[in-house]
Amino acid sequence: MQNENAPFLEVASLSKRFGGVQAVLDYELSLAPGEIVGLIGPNGAGKTTVFNLLSGVLAPTSGSIRAGGREIAGRGPEAGSAAGIGRTFQNIRLFPALSVLDNVRAACHRRLGRGLWPTLFRLPGARASEAAILARAREMLEIMNLSAAAEQPAGSLPYGDQRRLEIARALAAGPTLLLLDEPAAGLNPGETEGLRQAIRALRDRFGLTVLLVEHDMGLVMRLCERVQVLVHGRLLTEGPPAAVQADQRVVAAYLGSGGADA
């Protein structure tokens, strides 16, 4: 058994190459339980590739990912989920034809669902399981303030609600670490502030660890306790938000290095 402060996630020299393109090189990350960390960098820096590697969507070319003491690199998204990693997607991926409630209920299946025979013969265990799933799903909708829309098809929700539903759905699977890929993209300032409070509340309530990719620097600075900067697939620097913001190399990476080709 691990002790309380041991890192939940440890990533060592993680690399991914697509043909001739080195998308990520020697990426390192250590996340303690309950930390909120931001991953920033210019477009094309490899942030989403890092997320796809961490959640098991992509297999790395080399390197290791240990979550909760288990090696999950290259074992697929099911292994990532089983180890306690949940995620959202940059271009929202809901189950559009299912109702908002059923989107979240589907996410409870791994932990609470039953197999074919209990389902068909309606054994007592199946009834208890369905009741537990319904209760959990309603709780997640309540937390993300979506209860009123429970019966609507997910595809018909306004954009901001879809983003929140994706978080509710990821939470329902019971992750220890939540990867949020640009959660504030397309939100107005009011919605972004609501999102910031919601993420904080989730961390305080469930002890959730959060890693987020975000382009809204205001949100990153106000929410994250630590920030990593990724440029051309390599870690440029890592530290508290204020220090990273003041780092001249970070500014240069975002604005271009100042040469004639910038």
Binding site: P77, S81, R87, F95, A107, C108, R110, R122
Partner: peptide
């Protein structure tokens, strides 16, 4: 009975978006 069960919702989730479903451990 399948359709209105957790198992059935998991099947429909796979139809709707297989990658998202797998990331939820389905």
């Amino acid at each position: 009975a399948l359709k209105f069960s957790s198992l059935g919702r998991a099947m429909l989730a796979v139809r709707e978006d297989e990658l998202a479903a797998r990331c939820l451990g389905i």
